[in-house]
C-alpha cells in the first residue's frame, strides 16, 4: 500500500498530535538530560553546612577550620582536597570523590565534603 494512502488516513488533528507528541518526547528528553547531571557538592565546617555548589562547575573553595585553611578543588565533576593544614594529610591522600553519597573529610580541620544527588550506584560505602 502506498505511503500516501496511509497518510491520507490521518486527519489534520492527528498530524497535530504526532507533532505534539514528538515535541513532548524531545522536551522530556531535554528535561531528563538536564537533570541527570544535577548533582551538588556540600561542604561542612564542623557540624554546620558552610557551602554548596553544583558539581558540574569547576571551582576552588577555601575553607577556614580550627587548624587553618583547607583548599578544595572541583574539576570535571570530581572533588579533591589540594592543600590542608592537618598533620597527616589523609584528606589529600583520599583522592577525588565523584559519586553521589561519597564523602571526603579532614577530621583534624573539621571539614566534611559530601556529594549529593540522584544516580549513585550505592547508598553507602563500606571501606
Amino acid at each position: 500500500m502506498a505511503l500516501g494512502s496511509l497518510l491520507a488516513r490521518m486527519t489534520r488533528t492527528d498530524r497535530w498530535l504526532v507533532l505534539l507528541l514528538m515535541l513532548a518526547a524531545f522536551a522530556s528528553l531535554w528535561f531528563v538530560l538536564g537533570r541527570s547531571v544535577g548533582r551538588s557538592l556540600l561542604v561542612y565546617a564542623g557540624d554546620t553546612l558552610a557551602f554548596t555548589a553544583p558539581l558540574d562547575q569547576d571551582r576552588q573553595i577555601e575553607l577556614h577550620g580550627p587548624l587553618g585553611d583547607t583548599l578544595i578543588e572541583v574539576v570535571a565533576g570530581k572533588v579533591r582536597v589540594i592543600s590542608s593544614p592537618c598533620s597527616r594529610k589523609i584528606c589529600i591522600g583520599m583522592g577525588a570523590i565523584q559519586r553521589s553519597g561519597d564523602l571526603l573529610a579532614c577530621v583534624p580541620n573539621r571539614v566534611v565534603i559530601r556529594i549529593e544527588g540522584e544516580g549513585g550506584e550505592y547508598d553507602l560505602l563500606s571501606r
Binding site: Q98, E121, D123, L124
Partner: peptide, 23 residues
C-alpha cells in the same frame, strides 16, 4: 531499608581506589 527497597551497600575495592568490589 532505604524507604521501601533495601539499602545498597558498596564494598570498596581494596586495591583500586574509588572502585567497587561488589554491592
Amino acid at each position: 531499608g532505604h524507604a521501601e527497597r533495601p539499602w545498597k551497600i558498596g564494598i570498596q575495592h581494596p586495591r583500586k581506589t574509588g572502585q567497587l568490589l561488589a554491592t
